[in-house]
Design a protein around this nucleic acid. Structure first.
Lengths: 216, 216
DNA sequence: AATGATACGGAGCGATGTTCCGTTTGAGCA
DNA sequence: TGCTCAAACGGAACATCGCTCCGTATCATT
């Protein structure tokens, strides 16, 4: 399960490879991926790297050579699920009569993905430049989200919210969506989408925030 | 600045105190509060405890006796700002003709508070039971938020979102609201509120999330 | 002053992400 | 088949974090 269907041995760049990838390297990468997937299910995405290494029967050095940073390991593990989410966008648009419904369903799917892998949502709020995971999400999913928004509330330049921002909003809303509390990430995300649909491209600049006048 | 206006020497419980609070203890608590406020401004609320201790010219032990946990220190530092937010609720309701506008403005103020103290927003998503900060926010502000919601979209039992949940949603949306990216926490929060107002208490159970049918 | 409760300081603990480097291994060649 | 050395490995070690522990210093009371 969760086996990333890896092309037999794709030429890395465009250059001729000096040597072929070693067998143990390939084996370990797969073991790491499987171990991480297993550990993430039981301990959440915040599981210590050491745990994954141990589960895979591999040293710390190995894990960090294959995945230079924790985040990149997470990316690798969930890559194909993100792919599915990306493909679901156009599909929903084709299937659903009202593009608003397509957007709603896609958002719901996004939330479910984030919330199911507990802790995953947190990375969406990470620093823009840094986090590999954040970058991956955005690059792959933002265009899809934008397409849905285009169809549902019109083009970007009319003042509608950018897809990246909606995604990040939903991502943030999904944080802690499965702890004991009554917090319902899916519901909040749906309300956010409702706001986007209602407000559409009207763009009345919010409400300011001069509470000072009211505070006393 | 940021001096918690502390009663001269209030009897701790209802019991007669064995001894008075020592002068150095009071002095250090104040120094800690000031140091923390300063450090939080420059390094964010996630600043290491050691840094605060150093800034205050105090040992680690001292800081932890006064504030048993990092979160409690943060609570202490921002207590009066939270208080202002709590008082702004009823004030806005009285001042604004449309309760929806009161809710909007209050939410905007909440976001501004969270986003200004960079990193503060994160704690809203913490574990329900644990986090002292989370608990404090909820206990003090949730009733206020509920009152605003009552006025704007009717009572809780008609299916409207609970104040706690809206607060947490806004809190989550405010995460990372001041990093370099174009993410605009205030705008997202406003959209969420718009969704709450639009959807009101209608309660159509969201959109499910069976992307599987669309994915392929 | 004497005294003992109160408060202090900071080394130390356990956990975490990440780096470093000596050792092992396997792929290609003779 | 055996040699060779880049490639890959393992895990100790480092830096950082929140937090605890306990011997020592300080203040308030007698």
């Amino acid at each position: 399960m969760t086996t990333t269907p890896q092309a037999p041995e794709p030429t890395p760049g465009g250059q001729a490879p000096r040597r072929a990838r070693r067998a143990d390297a390939r084996r370990n990468e797969q073991a790491l991926l499987d171990a991480a997937a297993a550990v993430f299910v039981t301990h959440g995405v915040d599981a210590p790297v050491r745990l994954v290494a141990a589960e895979a029967g591999v040293g710390m050095g190995t894990i960090y050579r294959h995945f230079p940073t924790r985040a990149e390991l997470v990316v690798a593990v969930y890559r194909h699920q993100v792919e599915a989410l990306a493909e679901a966008g156009p599909a929903l648009l084709a299937e659903e009569a009202d593009p608003a419904d397509a957007l709603r369903r896609w958002a719901a799917g996004f939330v479910e993905f984030l919330v199911t892998k507990h802790g995953l949502a947190g990375v969406l709020g990470a620093d823009e430049g840094a986090g590999a995971l954040h970058r991956y999400f955005v690059e792959r999913l933002a265009p899809v989200c934008d397409a849905l928004l285009d169809a549902a509330v019109g083009p970007l330049d009319s003042g509608r919210v950018p897809g990246v921002m909606l995604m990040r909003g939903i991502g943030n809303l999904s944080i802690g969506g499965r702890d004991g509390s009554g917090y319902d990430a899916a519901r909040m995300a749906d309300l956010l989408v409702a706001g986007v649909l209602a407000r559409g491209s009207a763009s009345d600049a919010g409400a300011g925030s001069d509470l000072a006048s009211a505070a006393r």
